[in-house]
Structures are given as C-alpha cells and as structure tokens.
C-alpha cells in the first residue's frame, strides 16, 4: 500500500477558542505520522499549524467561539503533505509580518509576533490566499515534503 492510500483528504472543524489547539495538534500529528514523517517533522508540522491557528483564534476571531474554521489535510503525490487553514475572519496575510528582532521585542515587552516566523522556518512552503468572489474563505496553505 502506498502512503497516499492511507488517506485522501481530511477536515477538522474547530471554533475560535484556544482550548481547540490541543485537538488540532493531535489531528495534525496523527495525519503526519500516518503519512510517514519522522517524529521531529511531526512536531514541526503540528507546531506550525498550532501557531497559525493561535493567531487566527486570538486575532482574526477575537476568541469568539461561535466562529468556525477548518483545518484540511491532504497528500499531494507520494511525498508532500498539504495543510490548509480556512477562515472567515478579516483577511490578514501573515507573510507580511517582519522577522522579529529579539532584543527590540524584549525592550518593548512584546510577547507576540513569533508564530509566523516559526511557520516560515519549519515548513517548506507557505502561501496565503485571501477570500475573493470565487473563494469565500481566506486560505493559508502550508506544505511539507517527506524528505
């Protein structure tokens, strides 16, 4: 059985509540493990998705648990896992966030702004597509290759 036979496309529906993060990480870890990633990369993928969803829940959804978003996971060919996070919040392209300057952030007592940097460092590709007339939801696409 090839790896792509194990699953095709899976969706987790989550709400704008930080208690959801644990369930999201578990979902992503299970799928990444099933796909054949090393434990080190399973951790990195779950971390990236956690960071993206944390930002979404806290900023775009303002901790409003009546709002839903989706975490979609699908294999692309035999060697690539694609994770898409779809939301209905105000469009915000995380790729516009600058690389954090630690000393400056410490001086400013800033506790946020690191998540996007982590996502970019641990994933192989990150793309953002704001909602448009044909796509109702904003979409953050995270890509990780097996090797």
């Amino acid at each position: 059985m090839s790896k792509t036979d194990s699953f095709t496309h899976e969706r987790l529906t989550a709400s704008g509540d930080t208690t959801e993060l644990e369930r999201i990480r578990q979902f992503v870890q299970d799928k990444a493990r099933e796909f054949g990633f090393s434990e080190q990369n399973i951790h990195k993928i779950a971390l990236a998705v956690d960071e993206a969803c944390s930002n979404l829940i806290r900023h775009a959804y303002q901790l409003d648990d009546s709002k839903e978003f989706f975490v979609d996971i699908s294999p692309n060919d035999n060697d690539t896992l694609v994770i898409e996070i779809l939301d209905n919040g105000t469009a915000f392209d995380p790729l516009t966030v600058p690389i954090p300057d630690l000393n400056q952030y410490a001086a400013q007592h800033r506790k946020g702004g690191f998540g996007v940097h982590i996502i970019r460092m641990v994933m192989d590709a990150v793309e953002y597509f704001p909602a448009d007339p044909t796509h109702q939801m904003n979409r953050l696409k995270l890509v990780k290759k097996l090797s």
């Binding site: 960071e51 944390s54 800033r110 506790k111 946020g112 998540g115």
Partner: peptide, 9 residues
C-alpha cells in the same frame, strides 16, 4: 509554542 516563549519576553 511561541505563546509560551512570549511570556518570558
């Protein structure tokens, strides 16, 4: 996650 690291910052 970075939310935890942020606390120390």
């Amino acid at each position: 996650s970075s939310a935890g690291l942020g606390v120390f910052m």
